[in-house]
């Protein structure tokens, strides 16, 4: 173990021991070779409560090398408490470069959003996932959902969407919208909103999903088909922000956070992706 310049703590580089990293990386490779399929892995204890992204963190920590540049966002923001804490852990145990610029980062760990800027082939996006099983909504037994995946029997999910359409005239699923990956596996897109789903389709970057509590890793490799479940005559729709623009930078085609200003109920919209918003302001893009 090397101390001082690289590692000020008594832990291994990037906190996890090498055996754990190897286990996680092996499972990542397996996940990449079966796009969308959930791979069980031996999830370790992390100095963070379960439910705060322990799966995503284990993936990130297993991948970090000295040359890597890391960006961490939570709810799209680099400044949230969770993001700051994760960055502090990383800084302490391996002192690699941290950035807020999505274009600069080699690894981006995120809870809830995909960055607005298109990621490139050398970049890896790591998403923190609380519930990896897309069928849990319609079937509570693990044994049965595993069989459904094995036999590619997703009719229960289709039935859910059908009943939803009948009842409400539209599909009311907000987050966790089910998608078909590579035409084979149904995948849960927690935690990203509908807005970000089209970005998964044939993305240039690798996207990894980690669920620490549930002990699952899954992956969408670059240039993989990812299509949301939709009826032929009821196309998948993203959130509708027409007519709205960001208060800070003026953008009108990003995903917004809605802020209720005062007692009157007036709303303001700001870009959810703070890094992107900041960049726009700096370069004064109209």
């Amino acid at each position: 173990m090397l101390k001082n310049e690289i590692n000020q703590s008594h832990y291994n580089f990037a906190f996890l021991d090498e055996n754990t990293k190897r286990e996680v990386r092996r499972k990542i490779l397996k996940a990449i070779s079966i796009p969308g399929h959930q791979i069980p892995f031996a999830s370790r204890e992390i100095p963070l409560a379960k439910g705060f992204g322990t799966g995503g963190i284990q993936i990130t920590l297993s991948l970090l090398g000295r040359e890597d540049i890391l960006k961490v966002i939570d709810q799209g923001s680099d400044d949230s408490v969770n993001a700051i804490n994760i960055k502090r852990l990383v800084k302490k145990t391996c002192n690699i470069e941290i950035t807020e610029d999505a274009k600069q980062a080699s690894i981006i760990q995120s809870r809830h959003r995909i960055p607005e800027e298109k990621l490139e082939n050398h970049q890896i996006l790591v998403l923190q996932v609380p519930f990896p099983e897309p069928l849990r909504r319609v079937e509570s037994e693990e044994k049965k959902t595993r069989r459904m995946h094995a036999e590619m029997d997703y009719s229960r999910m289709w039935l859910y969407l059908y009943e939803d359409l009948i009842k409400h005239g539209e599909i009311t699923i907000g987050a966790r919208y089910p998608v078909m990956v590579n035409g084979r596996y149904l995948m849960d897109t927690t935690p990203i909103p509908r807005w970000d789903i089209p970005n998964l389709n044939y993305s240039e970057n690798l996207t990894l999903f980690g669920a620490g509590r549930e002990k699952r890793i899954y992956a969408v490799p670059p240039y993989t088909e990812v299509l949301p479940l939709e009826f032929k005559d009821h196309a998948f729709r993203v959130e509708d922000f027409s007519g709205k623009s960001c208060e800070k930078c003026g953008a009108s085609n990003t995903f917004f956070d809605e802020i209720i200003v005062d007692e009157s109920g007036a709303r303001r919209y700001v870009c959810s992706d703070t890094g992107f918003c900041k960049k726009r302001r700096e370069y004064n893009v109209a």
């Binding site: 009719s155 039935l159 059908y162 009943e163 359409l165 009948i166 009826f231 032929k232």
Partner: peptide, 23 residues
């Protein structure tokens, strides 16, 4: 599941994907 949903179930399992037609 509703009556219509139960019949739709069979159609969905047979890969029908047009909501209007299924209904």
């Amino acid at each position: 599941i509703s009556a219509s949903g139960n019949v739709a179930d069979k159609l969905l399992a047979a890969n029908w994907r047009d909501f209007g037609r299924i209904k």
